[in-house]
């Protein structure tokens, strides 16, 4: 059964993290506050988290949702490498994992980036735009609602 304040029965919470080569922090701090306000406990690993550490934390904490944010232009390269590493672990095969931010070094190629990221195993991609935050909030809401319906 899903509790009222968690994505999962055990209140496993949300893991927020930056990617290995990205040093930006404000995006992560904002997401932490936003997700907490949506009623979910957050563990924030901060910026420049090496792949192995992030995979290890996912295995250890078994989060109900993993939210990755990248704004340095390397998000697609780093994200593809990471999601493949995550999905190689059976226990993380179905964990919801999403990514957002500025995911390339130019505005071009946006659709192709999103396609690649989804194909590699991300559950949703939120490229910066006017409605990225609203779409992300909807996604978190739907995820919680779906779990409610299923339980």
């Amino acid at each position: 059964m899903t509790g009222p304040h968690g994505l999962a029965p055990t209140g496993r919470g949300v893991l927020v993290s930056g990617l290995a080569s990205d040093a930006h922090t404000w995006n992560l701090m904002y997401l932490q506050l936003l997700i907490e306000e949506l009623g979910h406990p957050v563990t924030n690993l901060g910026p420049c988290v090496p792949d192995e550490l992030l995979v290890g934390e996912c295995l250890r904490r078994a989060p109900g949702l993993v939210v990755l944010s990248s704004v340095n232009g390397h998000g697609t390269q780093d994200g593809l490498r990471l999601i493949r590493a995550l999905r190689r672990h059976g226990r993380l095969a179905t964990t919801p994992v999403v990514i957002g931010g500025m995911l390339g070094i130019t505005e071009e190629g946006r659709e192709e980036r999103v396609r690649q990221l989804l194909a590699a195993g991300f559950d949703a991609v939120f490229e910066n735009g006017t409605d990225a935050v609203a779409l992300f909030k909807d996604y978190v809401g739907a995820l919680t609602g779906d779990r409610h319906a299923a339980s």
Partner: peptide, 14 residues
């Protein structure tokens, strides 16, 4: 950024 964090293999590959 790869050079910054010392991941020279990733910089070389890119």
């Amino acid at each position: 950024s790869y050079t910054r964090v010392g991941d020279l293999a990733a910089a070389r590959t890119a």
